[in-house]
Write a protein that binds this DNA or RNA. Structure first.
Lengths: 261, 261
DNA sequence: GCGACCTGTGAAAATCCTGTGAACGCAGGG
DNA sequence: CCCTGCGTTCACAGGATTTTCACAGGTCGC
């Protein structure tokens, strides 16, 4: 849960060379990046839940200023970095006052662009405690990061800090199988020693508390030889006989991989 | 709300021409500016309660990087803008990763420098400036920021300055768990040293005074391993069963609802 | 069906965290 | 110069939480 949180970035630029190089670096850093060669309606940007937007105004057409203003207005939480060719002081000042977070001049080194995007995100995150994202609900569960607790029908599960962080991590990656190493790395913050069973132990504690508070549901599933997957499902052997769910397990393409971090 | 609140800026640079011009502009903008020709101990910067720092690393001497790192570490809330002469991409990237918020290259137009400082500071405002909002009431407590005091039934709790600030911070974030680091950062103004127990001690003092003035209520709750949460609740085994709680409270804590899905 | 591995459990042992009481150092007022 | 109010630091005690272990029970590939 440290600095290296994954960043969702959108790039609006038609300089394919620059964009490609940038893409490689961001991918290596574990960020999620989407690229566009022309203006994207602000509404769509909203839907992407971005952390930052890197844009070359030359591809925005005539109403570049208006577009930037609209984006900054609609998404005050979004970090906006302009990366433009020639520009005057007056233009840069206008942009910055308008709500832009940083203005880089091309040609620029991708590494610097990334560092600046990172800097902007860091600053924004600092100013906005993780209050936003309303409570995450799953099954009968309600996970509230503002209280470091999970609730079922209003009753707290009394999770300890570690338990909560583990649950939150799993729930955030809902549906995905996470390997033990990846889990340990992200919750404990450092590499897991060979043979460490801490993750298993905490999974058990979590399952116990979940079972007590919300019997009839199973939330955490074991994937033998791999890791764990969070996915709320009404218990099978329950009174409801049918409703099968052939359960394709392997689920969509987005299977595993991406642990890295 | 991003009103031009006055910005407190410190400039560390020995380029008298630049500094002078800058000073004129910031003054015109109503900012408070202090200028230094050499490195200033981070502790002194803390005492200045700055919003931003504009610094030319060439006047910092040999340990410029170390200095910047210390400043960024101690004052994570401070906006740090480096304004340097020649520099390489590697240097800029190093600075930005280190915690610098922006890196400008000299010669630069004062107007742009100001716009960038402004941009960096813009993010930091989130705490609503409800300075003059009516007194905040919680349980039997009345917190009056205009008096720097809290009262119960008209009687002052005799809080000291720190105690009051701590209480106010907690009450403003009512219902939310605040971590010690965050508390220390906001009340003391700089980063908490590892192992510092000041927050705990003040919490105890607060609890003592609250208990004496308003027995039967518990206001500050401990979240083991995390921090503290302010939330007025009538003590459990209390004689008054219910009916109390005029309280408008921010949220009916949990009104369940989810289930089913 | 048979080992070789994994994972689920319980409980003991080792750590970490918070509540407290008290000593210190400082600064302002008598 | 002494006294008093405040903020900081310490050290310790009692709990709460994490780790570590040894086993039992399951799963997988042959």
């Amino acid at each position: 849960m440290n600095s290296q949180q994954t960043i969702r970035l959108a790039v609006i630029d038609d300089d394919s060379g620059f964009v490609t190089v940038l893409g490689k670096r961001t991918e290596a850093a574990g960020w999620q990046q989407r690229t566009f060669a022309g203006p994207v309606p602000p509404e769509e940007l909203v839907a992407m839940k971005l952390n930052a937007l890197l844009v070359d105004p030359s591809v925005l057409g005539d109403d570049a200023w208006g577009y930037l203003e609209r984006v900054c207005g609609m998404l005050p939480e979004l970090g906006v970095i302009v990366c433009a060719g020639r520009s005057t002081v007056a233009q840069r000042v206008r942009g910055l006052r308008l709500g832009i977070d940083d203005w880089i001049t091309k040609p620029c080194h991708p590494e610097e662009a990334i560092a600046r995007v990172e800097s902007v995100c860091r600053r924004r995150r600092r100013s906005r405690p993780q209050v936003e994202a309303g409570p995450l609900v799953a099954g009968e569960l309600e996970i509230r990061s503002d209280r470091f607790q999970a609730f079922v029908a209003g009753a707290s599960l009394d999770l300890t800090r570690r338990e909560f962080e583990l649950l939150q991590l799993l729930a955030d990656a809902s549906g995905q199988v996470l390997e033990r190493e990846a889990i340990y790395q992200r919750v404990w913050g450092y590499a897991m020693a060979h043979g460490d069973r801490s993750v298993d132990v905490f999974i058990r504690k979590l399952r116990q508390k979940l079972e007590k508070a919300s019997p009839g549901w199973s939330y955490i599933h074991t994937h033998f030889g791999v890791g764990y997957r969070f996915d709320p499902e009404p218990a099978v052997g329950s009174e409801l006989p049918v409703a099968e769910k052939p359960i394709v397990e392997v689920s969509p393409p987005d299977t595993v991989e991406q642990l890295v971090v």
